[in-house]
Design a protein around this nucleic acid. Structure first.
Lengths: 204, 204
DNA sequence: AGCACCTTTATACAGATGTCTAATAGTAAA
DNA sequence: TTTACTATTAGACATCTGTATAAAGGTGCT
């Protein structure tokens, strides 16, 4: 089989890697453990990835590519800012934060802290988000008539990115106190701004 | 000697643990590596800590105790809100974020994600900060005359905590774009609020 | 000196870990 | 069927890892 590169075993190993990152963290990954989780002979790690570091790197790449795809999709949508915001926030629902996706993201991050190759890739992803957000917020703040002298776009973008990262971090750490309140507060403020822009749609 | 518990070797092992967490991450810690970094026979790990997990746990405890001490000190100071804010922010200067302290903090966090015993301790620290911030912000927002209906204290506290965590996370990941701008923006807004409260001190 | 006590060392050992090899099973074309 | 190639397997190897033990070193006290 294998049109390009993707025998079942290969994919199984990548999937198992993600699964174990979520369940046990990157410190617990070994060739044999991953292979066992994948239900595959441990020799195949060498066969497909030559070594463990490379398997991790490919898993990392597959993950970041998925992120890039999300970015692309979100960027392409021709919807209002508040809709984009809500879509993005729903995407990272609090329940999800505690579950797999957020954990995987943070484990990937913490892997990268000590591996320069991964670190660069991570920075690309970061820059990607920043680009999208900067563009979206530039338009939105203009629409809402917000003083970008007093609230520079890059500062606002940083605030949004960092508080989202922080939400993930806290949630994985087991704390979600105030998270809902925060997201509600922001949504309400956005709604107010939206209504002020276009008084017709006023609801409540 | 050892009045209570603290032969040089014992402390050296704890110090080495922190050092290696900063330089290589928790995945790279082994009994022999830590002992070597501490310049100490690896048998002493067993002698003082019985096993590696316990050494990590004690290093973790020592670290969180240091955090609690910081909290206590900050809380005890009888200074204005804006001064507290600036002190706290200076404490976590951007340059420092990239260096040891922030890295250590995040490595401790990511260790805790996969170890329930540590996770609880971490949540205590988190609650500690939240308590202090909640108290400080309750007073500050009252002083500044901010509508706590529209901006609930716990939402604001969450925003502040999460964006600070996010700053750390991004900085360790190698990105500090917009960080200065964000901190400046906040500081200016605080200064405005401060001036509005007490027009006498108006400066600029 | 002898003695007791805490600290340190060197070494041992079973099991895990990363890497590698040689043999086998499977599959599709000739 | 034979052939050629890919996929998979079981096992071997040196090294690393956590843990344990027994002996030695050091220090102060009697």
């Amino acid at each position: 089989m294998s049109t390009a590169q993707g025998t079942d075993s290969r994919k199984a190993l990548l999937d198992a890697t993600e699964c174990l990152l979520i369940e046990r963290g990157h410190a617990a990954l070994t060739v044999r453990v991953v292979a066992k989780e994948a239900g595959v002979n441990h020799g195949l790690v060498r066969y497909y990835f030559t070594n463990l570091d490379n398997l991790l790197l490919e898993a990392f790449d597959r993950f970041t590519n998925r992120l890039f795809e999300r970015q692309r999709v979100l960027y392409a949508q021709d919807i209002s800012f508040i809709e984009k915001w809500r879509t993005a926030m729903d995407d990272l629902e609090i329940e999800d934060r505690e579950a797999g996706y957020g954990k995987l993201w943070l484990e990937m991050q913490s892997m990268a802290w000590n591996k320069p190759e991964l670190k660069e890739r991570l920075q690309e992803v970061n820059r990607g988000w920043r680009t999208i957000l900067t563009d979206a917020f530039t338009h939105a703040m203009n629409d809402y008539g917000i003083d970008t002298q007093r609230f520079p776009v890059d500062a606002v973008v940083s605030l949004v990115m960092t508080f989202n990262f922080g939400l993930q971090l806290e949630a994985i750490g087991g704390t979600t106190d105030g998270h809902e309140a925060l997201l509600e507060m922001i949504d309400q403020q956005l709604q107010l701004a939206e209504n002020a822009k276009d008084p017709v749609t006023h609801q409540e």
